[in-house]
Computed example of a mutant assay.
Amino acid sequence: MLKRQPLAFCTVALGDAAKYYATTGTTGEPTPTPRLKQDIIWNAVSVAAHWRSVLRPGARVANLMPSDIVPVGDLIANVCEYLDVSHVRLYPFTTGITDWERVCNTFDTYRPTVLFIAPGVLVQLTRYLKQRDLLHTFAQSVRSIMLLGEVNTQPFRERLARGWQCEVFDASYGSTETGTLAAVGEDQQMRLATATHYFELLLPDGRLVTPAEGLTGRLVVTPLNLYARPLLRLDTGDSVTITAPWQPGQLSPSLLINGRDSDSIMIAGVSLEIRAVEEVVYGTCDATGYVIEIDRQNDSAALILERDVHWDNAQESQLQAQLLERSQQLMGLRWSRVLFVNNLSAINKSGGSQKSWKKTNLRFVGGKQ
């Protein structure tokens, strides 16, 4: 109903809202989302309470997240302003204003200590700097990288941490419709924002339950501080796993974001999911991107990997064998083939604002999606 008639749920006219946003539309038509000052302030203060341990006094923040029509870039700026932390905005896909060269020039002058960036955009930035032998130079000032906008995995973060020689966090999770639902805090864990939201899990058997350790289901949320468009029991469509017990009056539960249920797809009787695929890819090799080519006629899938800038082609036979074995062990799937290419399409790594995993990391041949 919210997707079909989004403005019917609003309590204010669009001209009375402080900001107007809309969802990216990666899973359907964009959803108009006005916000009042109360919405914006409550969300920023809530997130600041989590991020305060990373955004310490004296930090220099480079905000490489978009601000046009989606709220994430504004949120980061609002939190920095609330915490009185220096920051600069430079989204590298702002045509005519910012590109990779402008990013590098800004880094050279500003020397940021914290980066806010989508995982796919960070991969492109890392490749760009490696190709120009600049990664070590620009990584020297960076102490923390905050990833948001897409699902990312522990092996992926660990590899980036080695390359940048810094801490890499899964910074936050949320949506344009709801605001921020979880964020990383002092203990470096992603935790539900229970001070500002009421959470439930929709289990596969249809039960709606309180989140508890070990449960996996779709996250259902009731935001407590949305004023322009109040929501009651919104099904986010996102699969999450609760990884720590609920402790009333203490820390809120930690969780893993598994991705949208709609992104899951069956191949040869195996459910392909973002987290499982990336555990295999980034936990096995130094590829900087991947595409899964799905053959519907043969009910099979091939894995296509992008070589890193510094790459030994002689290792590929061994890597193929390792990837086949690891995929069989972790997913129960055997790829029809594993290929390596020098470059994948830029949209494959352009960030959560421009992509959905199913649309850009999966390629369908031989039949319907």
Rank of each mutant, 00 (worst) to 15 (best):
A195P: 02
L134K: 06
T137V: 13
Q124Y: 04
E177Y: 00
R260N: 04
G206D: 05
G174Y: 07
Y128T: 01
S175Q: 06
V168S: 00
V240Y: 05
R159K: 10
T196C: 14
P211G: 04
F138V: 03
P223F: 04
L215N: 04
V270T: 14
R191F: 00
S172H: 11
L224K: 15
Q131D: 09
E200Q: 13
R157V: 05
Q189M: 10
T126D: 08
A244S: 13
E213L: 12
Y173E: 01
L147R: 05
P223S: 04
L251N: 10
I145T: 02
S254Y: 15
M266D: 10
R229S: 10
A161N: 03
R157L: 06
Y227V: 11
T137C: 06
T210D: 13
S141D: 01
P245N: 10
D263S: 07
G163Y: 06
R157F: 06
G259W: 03
I265Y: 10
L125P: 00
S239P: 01
R127M: 09
S172W: 12
T210N: 15
L231M: 13
T178I: 04
Q154F: 08
S175R: 03
A161S: 12
L203T: 11
A161Y: 03
L208H: 11
S144A: 10
F199A: 08
E200G: 04
G259E: 01
T241L: 15
G185E: 07
T236R: 08
W246T: 06
I265P: 02
L215S: 05
A183P: 01
L272W: 09
W164P: 00
W164L: 01
Q250R: 15
V142K: 05
A212K: 14
F156N: 06
V209W: 03
T194E: 13
L148T: 08
L134A: 09
S239R: 11
R127N: 15
V221N: 05
L256A: 09
F138C: 00
A193F: 11
A195M: 12
I265D: 15
A193E: 06
I242L: 13
V142I: 13
R143C: 11
G249S: 08
S271V: 13
D235H: 08
Q188H: 14
R218A: 05
Q189H: 12
T176G: 04
T126V: 03
T243S: 08
L129K: 00
Q165G: 08
W164K: 02
L202G: 10
V151K: 00
I145C: 01
Q189N: 09
S262A: 14
Q189L: 14
I267R: 15
Q131E: 15
T194P: 05
G174V: 03
V220K: 00
L215R: 02
I145W: 02
R143H: 15
V220L: 02
D238M: 03
T194I: 13
P253S: 08
